[in-house]
Design a protein around this nucleic acid. Structure first.
Length: 801
RNA sequence: GCCGGUAUGGCGAAAUUGGCAUACGCACUUGACUCAAAAUCAAGCGAUGAAUAAUCAUGUCGGUUCGAGUCCGACUACCGGCACCA
């Protein structure tokens, strides 16, 4: 009997669709479960085999939860604003909206062909005005609470294309497209104060269940460090403030460094005697990308400021001030005190410029390398700190600084505020009007959505503004406050905006009065299980946590955290072990696999390919194994026998397999769950028969993985109803154990025999049985038994001399 | 340079978290069926061995332990991320 997967898969996809089998119910009295996968950017290339890995995994979870009786929400949508669509539109003179619609259609039909149990009634699209109306609304709330502000920021400016470039578009300091030099250009940009939430974003990681590497990455990214701010008087008569995590080493500060962008350079311009050298160094740094500044880390560069000296507050020593690009304006105060004896970077710089290295923490050889160990060092050459440990000295110094008004304790974060503006067309317009009299005035909420206007060309204007700036009728408005002529903001929001709250919209996607009804949010939120790529750990995941917290603060949502659980999948690589990409020519199109082997086989293979959390190379030949397994399952219909219970020979195996599959799905071990079902099938094949009860269980276990095949077999076996309406099988713990187990017998740690024993044998019975097997008896004969180790159900080890 | 991850048969990978290394699958070999091939079914399959003997095998070197893929220390290679974080 041949299994016609193409016909069967289409048949069930149609039935599921018609019957709305996977629609989440709005009955808020039922236990709920919200399963979420990151919604895709609908690119022109269509679906990639990487997408279904995450979608299938959580589809398995969603289907299992439904069988377990939950009201499940498993939605899908489109994160459709973004650069590639816009660039395509520019090139082909097609409206990005049309491109987006075509791409979405393609993605949607591809996803439907995989039998994913999404609730398509709740589909969202970030480019839909009915959706971005609420993205804009959230921005207005942020603005009203003072969390959105304007700041001069440097952007990548392509000297050839005359446009602002994304970091991604800058390759080795030149424009990816035209190869022209990219320079930094200062532009006033909208920013969001995510830093205000830094501490809460760290603290609340303790209240959620994220896999370790995700919470670790977030903590490192936010990068809290405690230290002190120290004020250095300068010979220019002003105060230069630095941030340090090592206030204990203040006596060892032998010079200072400020970032090339530091505002004091202009302030001191008259005093600095070597301004030409300083200027050229500034220019040189401006040309370097941040990446280059870190790349060239080994070779420190810098220029000494001639004419201004810093004064170390603890001993009033005058020390030189340098500018160097190893100090970043974006962290701390943009200025540091350099302690070459106890900081690796300062040490390298001091060696190169011949600066003194003063040891203030004993424990290493500071002429050879910086001694940075905080745990063991003891303070020396440090006046009132001498003899203290590093930790004691830190506290003492901070106290001293506070008492003498020369500094204060300070917590710093690596996290920087979020640049929330793009000089592009294909994004949400920022609903702000600039009035010369009233400043930045928010658009009235009744005017939302502020729709993207039609434009002739999607090219940014030559002076770095978005194409919106060229539409006078759109830009020129009257101030909502005073009625004077005013101008709209022409920058648009970054792609991250729409994805920072989409999980809320799924709860109530058609609501026209709010981003979602409060009852819907109260019922569905938080997301119970969110899976996505590691590449989104520090940006999307953090941004959306920030927005959710803000919405929590203003009473829109009721949970301080959006996601109760976060997991992450590994990448699917090309057959050659490299990342799949068009340029490498190793891309696999899921459509081809579905056509040749069927969606169930593709799903099963992607789950069987290896550890879900690790990357795995694609293998065309291995797919066959999964196809073969499904065909063998289908053939069970030919050997099915009457029987409403498990056969005695297979009862234990069934209970064990139910347990294994049930538990493995919860910990993302889909590969071993499948292996367990394969083993069970092998056992059934050896028996040559399967009872109806056994087939039922096996189909239910396999259903989340291979939904079409199991639905079809359920119908053919006339089990009644649809398999999607049944309950997840249960196992009996007591029946998962074998009566007899094989244990290994070692002599001095080497395996010499294997014996079958009763599973509940006592230690002394095991030892007795071990000693009585001939191979072992011969080896311990006449020797002294030094030690006897018995591990129940596993082994006996007899150590002899 | 910093951070994170990984390393097990010809290949993808398992290993109940310190207790029988290589489950499950792919590839391969042999056999059955067939005029033949494909498909299917059965058997074998870490290395050196004639061997069911023995020895060696989880990136390298060392350590802890009765016992290490798993723990500790040092290193190597590859992959990913990065904002020199003071």
């Amino acid at each position: 009997m041949k299994y016609d997967f193409a016909k069967v898969e289409q048949k069930w996809q149609r039935i599921w669709d018609e019957k709305k089998v996977f629609a989440a119910s709005n009955d808020y009295t039922k236990p709920k479960y919200y399963v979420l996968v990151e919604f895709p950017y609908p690119s022109g290339q269509g679906l990639h085999v990487g997408h279904p890995r995450s979608y299938t995994a959580l589809d398995i979870v969603a289907r299992k939860r439904r069988l377990e009786g939950y009201n499940v929400l498993y939605p899908m949508g489109w994160d459709a604003f973004g650069l590639p669509t816009e660039n395509y539109a520019i090139k082909n003179h097609i409206h990005p909206e049309i491109v987006t619609r075509q791409n979405v259609e393609r993605f949607k039909s591809q996803l439907k062909g995989l039998g994913l149990s999404f609730d398509w009634d709740r589909e969202v699209n970030t480019t839909d005005p009915a959706y971005y109306r609420w993205t804009q609304w959230i921005f207005l709330q942020l603005f009203k609470k003072g969390l959105a502000y304007k700041k001069e920021m440097s952007v990548n400016w392509c000297t050839g294309c005359k446009v602002v470039l994304a970091n991604e578009e800058v390759v080795n300091g030149v424009c990816e497209r035209c190869g022209s030099d990219v320079v930094h250009k200062v532009k006033s940009q909208w920013m969001l104060k995510i830093t205000e939430y830094a501490q809460r974003l760290i603290d609340d990681l303790d209240t959620v269940n994220y896999i370790d590497r995700v919470s670790t990455s977030q903590r490192n990214w936010i990068g809290r460090s405690t230290g002190a701010q120290v004020d250095f008087q300068t010979t220019a008569g002003d105060v230069l403030t630095v941030f340090t995590t090592r206030p204990d080493t203040l006596f060892g500060a032998t010079y200072m460094v400020i970032s090339p962008e530091h505002p004091y350079i202009e302030k001191w311009a008259d005093r600095i005697q070597n301004m030409d050298a300083v200027r050229s160094y500034q220019e040189e740094s401006a040309r370097k990308s941040d990446f280059e500044r870190t790349e060239l880390a080994k070779d420190k560069t810098g220029v000494k400021l001639e004419g201004v000296m810093g004064i170390n507050p603890v001993n009033n020593t005058e020390i030189p001030i340098f500018i160097s690009d190893y100090v970043l304006m974006t962290y701390g105060t943009g200025a540091i005190m350099a302690v070459p004896a106890h900081d690796t970077r300062d040490w390298e710089f001091a060696k190169k410029f011949g600066l003194p290295i003063i040891e203030v923490v004993k424990g290493g050889n500071v002429q050879e390398e910086a001694f940075t160990d905080c745990a063991t060092g003891i303070l020396v050459n440090s006046g009132f700190l001498d003899g203290l440990s590093v930790e004691e000295a830190k506290t003492r110094m901070i106290d001293w600084l506070s008492e003498n008004k020369k500094g204060e304790p300070k917590v710093n974060y690596k996290l920087r505020d979020w640049v929330f503006a793009r000089q592009r067309y294909w994004g949400e317009p920022i609903p702000i009007i600039h009035c010369d009299h009233c400043g930045y005035v928010p658009l009235d909420e009744s005017e939302l959505p502020l729709k993207l206007p039609e434009v002739e060309s999607y090219e940014p204007t030559g002076d770095g503004d978005s194409p919106l700036a060229a539409i006078d009728s759109w830009v020129n408005v009257t101030c909502p406050k005073c009625g004077a002529p005013a101008k709209r903001e022409t920058d648009t929001m970054p792609q991250w905006a729409g994805s920072s709250w989409y999980f809320l919209r799924y709860c109530d996607p058609d609501n026209a009065n709010a981003l979602a009804a409060k009852e819907a949010l109260d019922y569905w939120m938080p997301v119970d299980w969110y899976n996505g790529g590691m590449e989104h750990t520090t940006l999307h995941l953090l941004y959306s946590r920030f927005w959710n917290k803000f919405l929590y603060d203003i009473g829109v949502v009721s949970t301080p955290e959006p996601y109760a659980k976060r997991t992450s999948h590994g990448m699917i690589l090309g057959e050659n072990g490299e990342k799949m990409s068009k340029s490498r020519g190793n891309v696999v199109n899921p459509d081809d696999i579905v056509r040749e082997f069927g969606a169930d086989t593709l799903r099963l293979y992607e789950m069987f390919i290896g550890d879900f959390e690790k990357s795995a190379p694609w293998s065309q030949s291995s797919i066959k194994g999964c196809k073969r397994f499904l065909d063998r399952i289908y053939n069970l219909l030919e050997i099915v026998q009457e029987g409403d219970s498990y056969s005695s020979a297979l009862e234990g195996s069934f209970h064990k397999t139910i347990k294994k599959v049930t538990e493995d799905i919860e910990v993302l071990k889909f590969n071993t769950a499948i292996a367990a079902m394969m083993s069970l099938l092998n056992e059934i094949s050896n028996q040559g028969a399967v009872t109806r009860a056994e087939l039922k269980t096996l189909l239910l276990l396999l259903n989340p993985f291979a939904p079409h095949l199991t639905e079809e077999m359920w119908e053919r076996a006339q089990f009644g109803g649809m398999i999607t309406e049944q309950s997840w099988p249960k196992f009996d713990e007591s029946k998962c154990k074998d009566a007899q187990v094989e244990i290994a017998v070692q002599v001095s740690g080497r395996i010499k025999a294997r014996i079958m024993v009763d599973a509940d044998s006592t230690d002394s019975e095991l030892l007795e049985a071990a000693k009585s097997c001939p191979e072992v008896a011969a080896l311990i004969e006449g020797k002294t038994v030094v030690k006897e180790i018995v591990v129940k159900g596993k082994l006996v080890n007899i150590v002899v001399k």
